[in-house]
Design a binder for these strands. Structure first.
Lengths: 255, 255
DNA sequence: CTCTCAAAGTTGTATATACAGGCTAGACCA
DNA sequence: TGGTCTAGCCTGTATATACAACTTTGAGAG
């Protein structure tokens, strides 16, 4: 579990990452070429190639055929926040998730919904309104519109057992999404559903999801500001999927 | 620029992504093994290996030595939000960024700051307080504490020309970060600095940044709720760096 | 019938080799 | 002096081969 077990290409990557991290190699500096690594480290060129290629994919370096490999510009401060499905998020905290369906109806799309879904005013859409609870406490009001043609059996679903999100991703995989996060003052209806104080702001996530190249659902997710936050952990390039599972200990720091 | 020019390993990737995207291959289904691809597509095993390995890195499939390659669980709803440096963000919008330094002093770390930075109460920290403006309008109040030992020349910097973020990333590359987003009601001081209405909520980003394995700076970034939002565009796995540059057209949809 | 173990299939890594194509410096020519 | 062009280095891709390690299956021994 210690050192010698790592594969050679990984050792090469670690070596170069180490030099960059230590400041020995700075942005736009040239890093050893494949052939130089071959001679210095006594490996084959394909192994050196794999190391440098993966470092490129992970954003550490930039390669130019004919010129060489250079330290990348260290993305000037772009941090990542992962926004999870509310049910998954609650479950990951080890808490219990439940939801109450307030409305589940077929409607005609009006103004902003029609615009968001790229459909004509008056087209059929399903409207879902439900409250998600964490250990019994309201934590999210989900106000969702779904293209009627995309989910014909939407009215037959029991959304207290399967969340709309899970239902929709089961219909069609591999979707694209766009989202916006805002701080707003909720209206009385939202406040009531989420059991919020009069002067409490709300964290709102607007999310529009695509399937097969067209938007199919648009959701407004309201959260009580005093009981909800988005948390994210960012580690340098080489960590595409470890964001899940990192623990955030930044809890007691209220302004 | 059309079809035949793509390298073989990319054609293999596209072929398998196509089958997944079309629903022909569903999560946990087995995808062709390397040797099967070798025979079917008339390529060498290393080429098939590269295609499947990259699909693994990009999250499309999951591989188990001895068993095979299987379609991954299509991340059950994990969406990504990129949070950029405020100056970069403003510049990307084609607007002008300026900032006003309100405080730049050496202090002794108290309570929450000491805790966030993992240092003793009373340790030396620099305190920076500045307002960032977009086309003259206040858009962010940056309240930052920096470990004194990490940036000894912090007091000599002119933070109206180089943002604290740019200054700090120049000192040490490759850092780790943790952040939390909240909706809160700002106090009078914050409201005043950001020229906010009395009943306007604030979107707050708490960000703690590591270097060399230890936290070195802790920032509270306050934004006026009516003039600021976080936006993100999510495209399926194979898009590690294209998140920058996607246009969000979800603007006029107020709750 | 049950246990053991070997065979076959699978991924993971590593090497040697080959050719195509981009880029640059310096030799060479006019 | 000035322009051209080639030799040499670099990355990008592709192949053939080899061995290690893991998993399942089934044959064979007891």
């Amino acid at each position: 579990m210690s050192a010698a077990s790592k594969p050679m290409y990984q050792q090469l990557k670690d070596l170069i990452i180490g030099r960059i991290s230590a400041g020995e190699l700075r942005p736009s500096d040239r890093v050893p070429s494949e052939n130089e690594l071959v001679e210095a480290m006594n490996v084959s060129r394909m192994t050196a190639n794999r190391a440098l290629r993966e470092l490129t994919d992970e954003g550490y370096v930039r390669r130019v055929a004919g010129r060489g490999t250079f330290v990348a510009d260290l993305r000037a401060g772009s941090h990542v926040l992962e926004v999870h499905n509310i049910a998954d998020e609650i479950e990951r905290r080890g808490h219990s998730h439940s939801s109450v369906v307030i409305r589940q109806s077929l409607q005609h799309a009006r103004g902003e919904v029609a615009k968001a879904l790229h459909i004509e005013q008056g087209s059929d859409v399903f409207h879902l309104l439900l409250v998600h609870r964490e250990n019994g406490t309201p934590i999210q009001l989900e106000d969702r519109h779904v293209l009627a043609g995309f989910a014909p059996d939407c009215m037959e679903q029991d959304f207290t057992t399967v969340t709309p999100s899970a239902y929709l991703t089961a219909i069609s995989p591999l979707q694209e999404a766009e989202q916006v996060v805002r701080a707003v003052m909720p209206n009385a209806a939202v406040r009531s559903h989420l059991q919020m104080r009069d002067d409490e702001p709300s964290l709102v996530v607007l999310r529009r999801t695509w399937a097969h190249g067209a938007p199919v659902t648009f959701a407004r997710l309201h959260h009580p500001g005093s009981r909800y936050e988005l948390a994210g952990h960012y580690t340098p390039p080489g960590t595409p999927k470890s964001a899940t599972g990192t623990v955030v200990e930044l809890e007691k720091l209220r302004q």
